[in-house]
Structures are given as C-alpha cells and as structure tokens.
Simulated assay, not measured.
Amino acid sequence: MKLLYKSAFAVFLCISVVRCDGSSSPNMALLALATQQSPIGIEFTAVVGDSHATCGEDISGHGDSHSSSVVTIQHVAGVMPIRLKDLRFYVSGLELVDQDDNIITLDIPNTGVWQYSGVTLLDFENGKGSCSGTTETNNIVQTSVENKTYKTLRFTLGVPESLNHIDYSVAPSPLNISGLAWGWTMGYRFFVGEFISNDATTIGNAAVLHIGSAGCTESSGVYSCTNSNRAVIELTPTEGFNPFTQRVQFDLKKAVTGWDISTGSKSCHSMGAMDSANCSLVYPNFGLDYSTGNAGSAAQTVFGIVSK
C-alpha cells in the first residue's frame, strides 16, 4: 500500500511538474496543495539498537556489551549477533494533539488487509531466514493527515476489548491471523517479538515476548480480563511531530532490556504469576505494570519519533 501511494504520487509529479515529455510546468501550487493533504498516514520503522530489524541475516552493531546491578543488555550487544524470528504488533486508538491542544481522533479506514475497525497490524517480518510469519509486511497506518507539526501522537498497543475475543478463524483481516491469536484466552497477542542468538557460545538461545490481555474468563459468551495489558503510547517530542517528515520508531533492544539470553532463553507470554519473573522485567519498558496490567510508574522507552 505504501508503494501504491508512492506510485500515485510519482504519476502526479510526472503530470503536474514535468508533463512526462521533458518540459517543465509552472503548476507547483497544485502540487503543494496535493502534498498538504496527501493521505500518507503514520509511518513506523523497527530497529534493534543501531541496526534495522531485518529477517534473513544477522543483526549486529547494536551497541557495546555492558551490565549493571539493574539492567543487563548482553542479549543484543554487539558481540552477540542475533536473528529475528518475529516482530508484529497491533495499534489502535490513534490520536494527534495540535498546537492548540485540540485532540484529533484519526479515522482509520478498513483496507481489507492491514486495517479493520480502527485496528492496524504493523508487520516487520517477511518469512525469510529464521522469521516464521508471512511474506507480506506493513509499516504504515493508512489515514488522512495534514502536513503540519503536532504536539503529540498517541496510540494504544493492542486490540480494543470490543474486538479482542472474536473468533479469529472467521474474523476480517488483519484479525484473522492464527499466529497472533491466543486460544487459551480467546484473544489476541497484541505484540509479538522474538529473536534467537547466533553467537557461537550461545547459539539458539531465544527471547520470546508476547503481550496480550491476561486473567481472562468467560461466562455465557461474555469475556472479562483482570489485566488489560494495553500500553497507551504518548509521544511528545520537543520539536513536535510532523507525519510527513517523521516516523515512529520501535526498538526491539529497548523492549527486552532487562533480559540476558547469554545465560539461557527468556520468554514472557503474559500468563500471570507463572510468567512474572520474566514479564515483570520487560513490561516497564512499555510503560506497563505487570502486576496490574495498567500503566506503571516508569515511562515507556520502546517507541520514539525519528526523521524519515
């Protein structure tokens, strides 16, 4: 879909500026107007520290190894090449706050593939190498936005409760993906991030992080969950946010800060007390308190704003 937007823009550029015959056109005002209102949406990117999160090859160069009494990040240190296995997550409830503090709730159209009922699936794995998902990828929330600077971008990492317990096998895309559904809660994995070590001394050690609602029960077809585990991400960079020149960056290294897979595999499946030892170390990276499933005292660190 991103390619479609770029292709459409290229055709427009050809017609309005160059006329496709090599001659120039004075119609720059029309081009500027189109650019102001172009439905580019909100673009995302995924990294592991200083490296792109890419399937099919070693990811390295993501910082020097160091540790402290609180945090160990040997798991994605430069001395430990890793291989991505999966990186997908749902976002919903997108809002922009303008310079006058007006809240703009973004309209997220159904696209038939990546978006449905206000939910967008962002997919950074392509099924190559050790990645186990699908070949298709998506890094944009398609929506109409203006070319201006906003104070804040806000969104929820997760599927709304009203959609969380539908039957994925008959659900519209992107809520029909079995790899993102949880049979034991009849709900969705809001976030899936997985990688393995490819270092000779720790080869095969894995990190598996799945975030979804927990403590879910059902009575007469009605579900309720004690722990929502939906992180509300609010990004207010000093210079503001312009969706035409900036994008949202997710950092898998920051997401698993607190884990050390040099000593063995780590996993969190958001399964309550049985997962507490590992989940409680990484949930604060998303701004969540694992014991309650609500916002915690620590600010999230996994998402930020960067230039395109």
Score class of each variant (00 low, 15 high):
residue 271 M to T: 12
residue 133 G to T: 04
residue 256 V to W: 00
residue 102 N to H: 15
residue 93 G to H: 09
residue 154 R to P: 03
residue 296 G to Y: 02
residue 40 I to A: 04
residue 272 G to N: 05
residue 160 P to N: 07
residue 24 S to E: 08
residue 242 N to P: 04
residue 81 P to I: 10
residue 82 I to W: 07
residue 152 T to W: 05
residue 70 V to C: 12
residue 74 Q to A: 13
residue 109 P to I: 02
residue 78 G to I: 04
residue 146 E to H: 11
residue 88 R to L: 03
residue 111 T to H: 01
residue 158 G to T: 00
residue 281 L to M: 13
residue 100 D to S: 15
residue 115 Q to H: 02
residue 67 S to P: 01
residue 101 D to I: 06
residue 147 N to H: 12
residue 252 L to Q: 07
residue 167 D to Y: 05
residue 221 G to S: 03
residue 253 K to P: 06
residue 128 K to A: 12
residue 244 F to N: 02
residue 251 D to T: 01
residue 89 F to H: 00
residue 306 V to M: 02
residue 187 G to H: 07
residue 185 T to N: 11
residue 88 R to V: 01
residue 256 V to C: 00
residue 192 V to F: 08
residue 96 L to E: 07
residue 200 A to N: 12
residue 256 V to I: 15
residue 214 A to W: 01
residue 272 G to K: 04
residue 136 E to T: 13
residue 278 N to L: 06
residue 230 R to N: 05
residue 127 G to W: 04
residue 53 A to L: 08
residue 179 G to P: 03
residue 215 G to Q: 07
residue 260 D to L: 02
residue 123 D to T: 12
residue 143 T to R: 05
residue 181 A to Q: 09
residue 32 A to C: 15
residue 186 M to Y: 13
residue 200 A to R: 11
residue 72 T to K: 13
residue 227 N to I: 04
residue 212 G to Q: 09
residue 183 G to Q: 14
residue 107 D to I: 07
residue 79 V to L: 08
residue 198 N to C: 05
residue 126 N to I: 07
residue 173 S to M: 08
residue 292 T to D: 03
residue 278 N to R: 03
residue 68 S to I: 03
residue 70 V to D: 12
residue 234 E to N: 06
residue 119 V to P: 00
residue 184 W to G: 03
residue 153 L to M: 08
residue 181 A to D: 08
residue 48 V to W: 08
residue 62 H to S: 07
residue 23 S to E: 12
residue 49 G to F: 06
residue 68 S to D: 15
residue 196 I to N: 15
residue 228 S to F: 09
residue 272 G to V: 07
residue 17 V to Y: 06
residue 98 D to R: 04
residue 10 A to T: 14
residue 253 K to R: 14
residue 285 N to P: 02
residue 197 S to T: 07
residue 149 T to Q: 02
residue 47 V to P: 01
residue 243 P to M: 06
residue 110 N to L: 02
residue 303 F to K: 00
residue 3 L to A: 14
residue 215 G to H: 06
residue 184 W to V: 05
residue 7 S to C: 11
residue 217 T to N: 09
residue 266 K to Q: 10
residue 308 K to S: 02
residue 45 T to S: 14
residue 64 D to M: 14
residue 297 S to Q: 05
residue 55 C to Q: 14
residue 230 R to Q: 11
residue 252 L to W: 04
residue 284 P to C: 06
residue 85 K to M: 14
